[in-house]
Design a protein around this nucleic acid. Structure first.
Lengths: 103, 103
DNA sequence: ACTTCATATGACTAATAATTCATATGAAAA
DNA sequence: TTTTCATATGAATTATTAGTCATATGAAGT
């Protein structure tokens, strides 16, 4: 069964903060501190979540002196966002009422 | 910001059991008990998660006498699975090592 | 080599989500 | 109209995930 890799994918993706990080990186590659300050999050919080995104292949990074620059794996993330956009625009009214959300 | 609807989407999608339910429905529409027995899960567990999938627009249902038949919103779910498949096949070795997974 | 800056990581705690259990609802058959 | 079958739901418990804090690492400059 291929659920295990699927699981990996959806769990990594299914998180508010990781979603926000991906949205940040959509525009341009960024260092950890850049992400922190634009989102108002702590460094280690962002680092932990970036690790997860790296592990699951949604982002990659490269060293730049002392910094580390993170960028999107666009091949996966861009079409993913497109599907979500489409789904949301087609189901807007309905989605408001869902009970899973806490934030 | 559109994070809120995105959030809704990714949280609903980012769950092992909901993923498995969606995989079941990929083949054909099913009643709650059919899903239960093919996955070996309890009825209320499945019902709760189906509610979430309904709320977020991934599945729809219709009554059939005493039963209720659930089916996929293929327009969203099928392309979603395609992207995941592609991502997994391109990142197979790497994905194994990810630390987010518990199951 | 030591200090600093940028990031990573581990362990603990806090927040959130999933599961269970008991019960409710609602359609159909007796 | 009551019994049964199929599913839904609420509340409480348990499990999982995220966040925090302290500390480690590692590159670069002094």
């Amino acid at each position: 069964m291929k659920s295990n890799s699927y699981l990996l994918f959806v769990k990594a993706f299914g998180s508010p903060i990781r979603l926000k990080i991906l949205e940040q990186l959509k525009n341009s590659p960024k260092s950890v501190m850049q992400i922190c300050s634009s989102l108002g999050f702590e460094q280690s919080k962002v680092s932990h979540n970036l690790r997860c995104l790296i592990d699951c292949g949604f982002v990659k990074n490269r060293r730049d002196g002392k910094k580390r620059i993170y960028s999107l794996n666009k091949e996966t993330v861009v079409p993913l966002f497109k599907i979500i956009d489409k789904h949301i625009s087609k189901n807007k009214e309905h989605l408001i009422e869902c009970g899973v959300i806490s934030e």
